[in-house]
Every structure is written in C-alpha cells, then in structure tokens.
C-alpha cells in the first residue's frame, strides 16, 4: 500500500516542488533533455545553471546509492543493443520534440500547454506500444 500509492505520490509532490523552485526563483522550466542539450550546444550565460542542475541530479542519485535507499533496479539491465537504441531514440526524439517527461510531461502539462499535452499523450502511447512489443517479442 505504502509502496504502491504513498511513496509514488510523495515522490511526485517533491518532483513538482523541485521544478517549482526553478520557476519561482529563476523563471526557468525544468526540462532535463533541454538542459543536457544546452550543455552540448551551449548558449551564452545559460551553461552554469544547467550544469548545476545536472550535478544536483547526479549527487541526489549518489546520496541515495550511498544510503542504500531502495531507488535502483536490482534486475538485470536490458541487453546492450536495446540500451543503445533506446538512448539514441530518447536523445534525438526529445530534442526534435523539444522536451521529455520533465519539461513536457510535468511542467508543460501543468501549464496547460497544448504542445506539451499533445507531446505527453504521444510519447506515453508510443511508450506503451514499445513495451507491448517487448513483452510479446522479448529482448
């Protein structure tokens, strides 16, 4: 019960709160694909905060790992070709579509942006289809 509903909800509230800080203080959208893309193709004056946000994500993961917090998978990872194909599609697609789960899915949907709502609907359905394929044809 706690694992199924309470922790996912608590995590979600914290995710919303974190993204809210960036909006209220810096006036920016917390979109992680855009942040990574902005570090690859830097714009003047926009790099330092993006790197800081990424360092925050990494250190959060490091802390949860060190504290042995049950945040990471104990299952075997997907085979290498799947990880590579997935990464290429996620990288290219999120930049082409101007956002991913954080920027479109959380920030954009909460702003009632028609673009983000459409993007979120599309990537959720596409994700369901690819899981359907994996479940039926395996890795």
């Amino acid at each position: 019960m706690i694992d199924t509903y309470f922790l996912p909800l608590l995590g979600g509230l914290l995710i919303g709160f974190a993204a809210s800080l960036l909006l209220l203080f810096n006036g920016k959208i917390f979109g992680v694909s855009g942040i990574v893309g902005g570090v690859i193709s830097p714009q003047k004056g926009e790099t330092a905060w993006k790197i800081a946000a990424l360092v925050g994500l990494i250190l959060g993961g490091l802390l949860m790992g060190l504290l042995r917090f049950d945040a990471f998978s104990s299952l075997p990872a997907p085979p290498m070709p799947i990880l590579v194909a997935s990464g290429l599609l996620v990288g290219f697609g999120s930049r082409l579509g101007n956002g991913c789960t954080s920027g479109h899915g959380v920030c954009g949907v909460a702003r009632y942006s028609p673009r983000s709502i459409t993007a979120t609907a599309l990537f959720t359905v596409a994700g369901m289809l690819s899981v359907l394929l994996i479940r039926n044809f395996g890795w």
Partner: peptide
C-alpha cells in the same frame, strides 16, 4: 513536435529510462 515525441516515447518504453531518471541512476552507481 509530433515526430520527436513519438520517437522519444518509443525509446523510453524500450529501456524504461528517460533523461532525468537515467542521470540519477548513473549517480547511484
């Protein structure tokens, strides 16, 4: 927007990773 989001979603489902959780998992070792 439409093409990019579809490609992104398909890739997301393949591994179960999207950018932020993948970066966090890398930090977690």
């Amino acid at each position: 927007l439409l093409g990019g989001s579809t490609l992104f979603g398909f890739g997301w489902g393949l591994s179960g990773y999207c950018p932020a959780p993948a970066i966090v998992a890398a930090g977690g070792g």
